[in-house]
Design a protein around this nucleic acid. Structure first.
Length: 931
RNA sequence: GGGCCUAUAGCUCAGUUGGUUAGAGCGCACCCCUGAUAAGGGUGAGGUCGAUAGUUCGACUCUAUCUAGGCCCA
């Protein structure tokens, strides 16, 4: 026997297995397994095979350490783009990559293996580096996959793969062929104890005691031509230095063009120092007060010549804006072979890069008195020499921050070394780069300005590093005449060997086994060669990434469509990729470049260990799930710097719940609905259902455009608002009465369900690129209802249907909803006064203007459902303004229907179901009859 | 110090070519509901648009300076 019929149970309440609790942390990994099991990434590619490609080329993160929020932001943004383009029908393979060579791994290995590794066989050392990089590629790969990022994770590109290393060498060969590679001098940090060049990252700053000396450089040219007041008087320019050992390499004195310099007469001589430092100078040297004869701008003195204090050589006065008035004399001793700034200034003035110091830090024969002496030991005799020849004004000692070697902790020197460069102003390389920058599209637009300024002003590209873990610069030196063998065909030959054996071949093979047979020195004809041991800058490695990735994959056309990285890459990858591609392809590797900002803490400060404000992606994933992290990426204006904090994450969890509950309500009220069988034509829909679709139309139009502009946060905000306001607060609230109490298969209910299904079907696909896990979860719940693809990510991106949009309807409902708001206010007042609780306890009467009355009577029977009250009456009141009807609330007459909770005077008048209203009675009777 | 960028309610964002009392959602406070229920609804209070000076009849919107912050250089 069936259960007796129950009026209470005769309502159609929502039913769904789609849980209110997402349990993202537990369920996301299961979803990833599902995707893996159906080969989703491959299916997506297969679906779009043969259609127009859209290639987002991945910039390679460095294979070291765990991913941080910046990397997560970056990968998720890329995933938004790729998923969107894929749903739009583009063929969009995503090949992730890693940057594997370079100093950080090398440093790490040296620390792990002990500094004795310097003596280790280089091949063995490189093997250790490779293993380390492999390990972190594995770790990061899993972390990226965990974020729900789709891609060819099984076949990423690695800058250390044989084929990639071969491409690096090949592109180097292209530059050789172009004729832009040259060998020049450049100062680098150098540890004289370890006898090695040091990178910036290997330098530590510690306090160190140095001499502090003021030295006179006597005038050689006639200063009175620009300072008439000093005519006929002996004049010297005074410099200050803490490294007297660099004086033998002095070639210039730098002044600031805008500062004032004074010629001050002290005793029988005239000294030139900066005006702003004069009193400090006199005090620090103990000189007597002098008479200021004249004052001129530094710029006026440019080109004047002094004599070196103890070498028969000129020292020219040059201008540089890094000169400060913090210390010294404002006249800066300049030795282009011993300082970065000095070097740059020297380049500008065409000075040679003089560096009379060898690998061990000893003066060469170029230095007369002290050749063979270690430079730090030479400080004292040099000062003594200056004192004796009268050039010294004063010598004291100073304790200051000075660079030290991270390995041996001894003070280091700045020393010029031979380095390899790519010339930018040869063969129009720079001009072409600037042209290509103009051809590409930069988002945001200021990116173009930023990279243009950099490319226009940068010096030649120094591509050599004195390192082991990388791709060697494949040039040779004649072992007889020491001439350089740099030949494009030779490089190509070596690159061919790398293709099979990797760059290790450079170290494994002797030069004869690397060179094409019969290679002879172009200078002397000798046939034995030594190899270059410098490696290429890792920016060169990553710069050729698209060439290396697309070379063996015919499905990847040149150039790619998009590069998407953080703003730091204007200097980095956007830049090196542009230059490298001009070497091998003559065009930029990208059509569009999109940049994102930096991830900052809640106060807008950069995250750092020392500040203790670092949030790890792993923490967020463990606490809230990757979906929340993705939603964060989707919610912020990422082209500017973005903030993250516990508060922000907690807001996002709330927003997520709202969106999730919206999907759940949709699914719940579609239980048993079969769109193919039950859906109504758009024309047959009730007006408010049509309104909901019109709003959906607006949402889709807005969001489609936002996706095209990569304005993801617009989508998040629009969808969230749509869920909260249009659906939850308005449409669903009004709809509940109809969904729950109308007969299950009545046209009114089917009309609502048709709208709900349409909203669900479109909303889920709209959200799929942003929140792929939840969209998929909802999609799987929809699949039993209709014939749908196996995954939401195999579905087409939703486009609005023209038939839904009805501007007049939208305008009309704007007006209805405005009046609804007035009713809500009035109901709230009644509630505050204790006259009603639930709005269904109320009856509302509207005193409206003539226009409004006409407008409202059109909706007559619907109004009580729209306002969610038990009755609405309206009367024309000449006093009321348009759009401002007077709302009166009183208690609804009659009794509450047990079934639909509306109040009706007819409740109790039906003998068979005395607790039910006139609206429910036919439904109940039908159901009871069936039962 | 240089190049580029940012600064609108507690949070995340809108604010079109300068034009009436600066918007949204969320959060918050108070209330209602208990048939979306670790849900749902209503009402309400929140901003001298980083600061200062200027251009203008009028500036969140233009200019300059400053402050705070970010990336990249030096």
């Amino acid at each position: 026997m069936d259960k007796p019929f129950s009026v209470k149970d005769s309502v159609n309440l929502p039913r769904t297995d789609f849980k209110m609790q997402a349990n993202l942390v537990q369920n996301e990994p299961k979803m990833l397994q599902f995707w893996e099991s159906i080969g989703l990434y491959e299916q997506i590619l297969r679906k779009n095979e043969g259609r127009p490609p859209y290639i987002l080329h991945d910039g390679p993160p460095y294979a070291n350490g765990n991913i941080h929020l910046g990397t997560a932001l970056n990968k998720v943004l890329k995933d938004f783009v790729v998923k969107y383009k894929s749903m739009k029908g583009f063929y969009s393979p995503y090949i992730p990559g890693w940057d594997c060579h370079g100093l950080p791994i090398e440093k790490r290995m040296e620390t792990e293996l002990g500094f004795g590794s310097k003596q280790m066989d280089i091949l063995e050392f490189r093997q250790h580096c490779r293993r380390y990089a492999e390990k972190y590629v594995g770790i990061q790969r899993e972390q990226f996959k965990r974020l729900g990022v789709f891609g060819d994770w099984a076949n990423p590109y690695l800058t250390m793969s044989h084929s990639y290393e071969s491409t690096i060498a090949r592109v180097f060969g292209d530059f050789v062929k172009m004729g832009n590679v040259y060998r020049g001098a450049k100062p680098v940090f150098w540890c004289i104890s370890c006898q090695t060049a040091l990178a910036e990252a290997e330098v530590e700053y510690d306090d160190h005691e140095s001499p502090s000396v003021y030295v006179k450089f006597p005038a050689k040219s006639d200063f009175s031509r620009v300072i008439p007041e000093v005519a006929g008087k002996p004049l010297s320019v005074v410099i200050w230095t803490t490294t007297p050992w660099t004086l033998p390499a002095n070639l210039a004195i730098a002044l600031h063009p805008d500062y004032d310099y004074v010629a001050v007469e002290i005793g029988d001589e005239v000294l030139v120092v900066a005006e702003g430092l004069l009193s400090f100078f006199l005090q620090d040297t103990g000189l007597a007060q002098g008479v200021v004869l004249a004052q001129v701008k530094g710029a006026v003195l440019e080109g004047q010549i002094c004599r070196h204090p103890f070498i028969d050589r000129d020292s020219v006065l040059v201008l540089a804006d890094y000169v400060t008035l913090e210390q010294g004399t404002g006249c800066v001793h300049t030795a282009p072979g011993h300082g970065q700034e000095d070097y740059v200034t020297g380049q500008r003035y065409g000075l040679p890069v003089l560096c009379p110091v060898d690998n061990e830090g000893r003066f060469t024969d170029e230095v007369p008195h002290w050749n063979g002496m270690e430079v730090f030991a030479a400080n004292e005799p040099i000062v003594e020499h200056l004192r004796r020849n009268g050039s010294l004004i004063r010598a004291t000692a100073i304790s200051h921050s000075y660079p030290h070697c991270w390995r041996c902790h001894k003070p280091i020197v700045f020393r010029s070394t031979k380095q390899w460069f790519i010339a930018l102003d040869l063969n129009d390389l720079r001009a072409k780069a600037l042209e290509e920058i103009k051809r590409a599209k930069w988002y945001p637009e200021w990116g173009e300005t930023r990279i243009t300024n950099m490319v226009a002003n940068r010096p030649d590209w120094c591509i050599s590093r004195q390192r082991s873990w990388g791709v060697p610069i494949t040039v040779f030196y004649c072992s007889k005449c020491d001439g350089v063998l740099m030949d494009a065909e030779v490089v190509a030959h070596v690159a061919g060997i790398f293709e099979h054996e990797g760059a290790d071949a450079w170290y494994r093979r002797g030069s004869t086994e690397l060179l094409p047979p019969g290679t002879a020195c172009p200078q002397c004809g000798h046939t034995e060669f030594d190899k270059e041991y410098d490696i290429l800058d890792v920016w060169f490695d990553s710069g050729v990434s698209y060439e290396a990735t697309s070379r063996n994959r015919p499905e990847l056309p040149w150039p790619s469509d998009m590069y998407l990285e953080g703003g730091d890459q204007y200097r980095g990858w956007f830049h090196s990729s542009l230059l490298a591609s001009l070497g091998c392809r003559d065009t930029a590797p990208y059509r569009e470049v999109l940049t994102h900002g930096w991830v900052l803490d809640k106060d807008g400060l950069a995250m750092s260990k020392s500040r203790g404000n670092v949030i790890e992606p792993e923490t967020v994933i463990k606490q809230s799930g990757a979906e929340i992290l993705r939603l964060w990426v989707g919610s912020v204006e990422y082209r500017e710097d973005v903030r993250i904090s516990d508060e922000i994450l907690s807001r996002l969890r709330e927003a997520y719940r709202k969106i999730r509950n919206t999907l759940r309500f949709l699914l719940g009220n579609l239980a048993g609905f079969n769109p193919a069988r039950d859906a109504l034509d758009a024309a047959a829909l009730l007006e408010i259902d049509h309104w909901a679709l019109a709003r959906l139309h607006q949402l889709l139009a807005r969001c489609g455009q936002a996706y095209d502009r990569y304005d993801f946060h617009i989508i998040y905000h629009s969808v969230y608002q749509f869920c909260s306001v249009d659906l939850s607060a308005v449409y669903f609230d009004i709809l509940k009465d109809r969904l729950y109490t109308a007969a299950a298969d009545s046209p009114e209910r089917r009309s609502a369900q048709t709208a709900l299904w349409t909203i669900l079907h479109h909303l889920v696909r709209l959200l799929a690129p942003l929140i792929p896990f939840t969209s998929e979860e909802a999609w799987q719940h929809m699949r039993p209802m209709a014939d749908l693809p196996e995954s939401v990510h195999l579905a087409d991106f939703p486009v609005p249907k023209a038939a839904w949009l009805d501007e007049r309807l939208l305008a009309k409902w704007d007006r209805v909803l405005a009046i609804r708001e007035l009713v809500s206010k009035a109901l709230e007042t009644a509630r505050q006064e204790g006259r009603i609780g639930n709005s269904l306890e109320a009856r509302v009467s509207l005193g409206a203007s003539h226009d409004d009355t006409a407008f409202l009577s059109d909706l007559a029977g619907e109004l009580r459902y729209i306002f969610i009250v038990s009755g609405v009456t309206f009367t024309e009141r000449p006093g009321a303004g348009d759009g401002q009807p007077e709302v009166t609330v009183d208690k609804a007459p009659g009794a509450k229907c047990e079934r639909c909770w509306n109040y009706s005077e007819r409740v109790g008048t039906f003998d068979d179901f005395p607790t039910v209203c006139e609206r429910c009675i036919p439904v109940v009777r039908a159901l009871a009859g069936k039962a």
